[in-house]
Amino acid sequence: MELALEILPQVLLDGIVLGFMYALIALGYTMVYGVLEFINFAHSEIFVLGAFVGVEVLLLLQSAGYLAILHPLIILLLVIVASMVISGFAAMALERVAYRPLLGGPRLVALISAIGASFFLQDGLRLFESLWRNTFYLNYPSLEFLDQTVPLAANLVIPVKSILVIVTALMTLAGLYVFVNRTKLGMAIRAVAQDPDTASLMGVPVNQVIALTFFVGGALGGLAGVLFGIHYSLVNPYTGFIPGMKAFTAAVLGGIGNIPGAMVGGMMLGLLEAFAASYLSLMTDGAFGAEYKDVVAFLVLILILIFRTKGLLGEKVRESKA
């Protein structure tokens, strides 16, 4: 029991960091689901792309000798902006090539196409990195600034990396909230999510709004990718699958199409996973350990869907027309 209390702050911190990452990725799923009603299966690859852009920018800066000269915050800003922009455009391109030709058809067709796009991007990234760097397992170069820790209490040491994740994610989520609720473009996105036909009659350019949604979702995924890379250091083209699945779980947990729901769901899933990872072995005397955290996450998804089919905060998708 004492041990359980002692590690509690650390577990909470881990859960919050993980939760913010899931929330950022989940937003990409949920926003796209809101406007198009389909699972953008390739979103996990957009997330990985963000991580790879991040590591590439850092490696390029390193080889040019700027990594030691520039202020760490400028470096971080550069990395984050680069990966958000590239991931955003990649998501837009994906929509244009693989999804738009299929609009209006059965949803299964678009989902299969998304799965195809996901596979294509995984191996495409692998091919590119193999040709370019001779390996597709890349390590983030360490930044001294990020390796520091801030001791907060006797049993809680906060690494700067975690602070970075929390601060960036909070700022982005606040920005997204303002964007979606207070700007004209945000209103357009909400209008298309509610009813694309009526929105189009009101003069909303539906296709452009969908592209914009993909851009925003992709940029958030790219940001999550960079933060993931910085936090866990190692990336490869196939790392996206599990976080992507979890993030989708988070989006469903909160109620798909529902933007605050994705944030809540992500945070819940992150905390749940951190608790499972740390307390499962304590609770079962070591019989079941941290390796069951994925099982717990998916079981929770299945249970939630059985008992609350529309997620915790309810879906926000249009009523399907009969």
Binding site: I112, G116, F119, F120, Q122, D123
Partner: peptide, 21 residues
């Protein structure tokens, strides 16, 4: 590095997208 057998997912993905379209 250019070895088709290692990139079955890429071929697969491309086929899936093209077929769906």
């Amino acid at each position: 590095q250019f070895e088709p057998a290692k990139y079955e997912r890429m071929v697969f993905g491309l086929i899936l997208i093209l077929m769906m379209i």
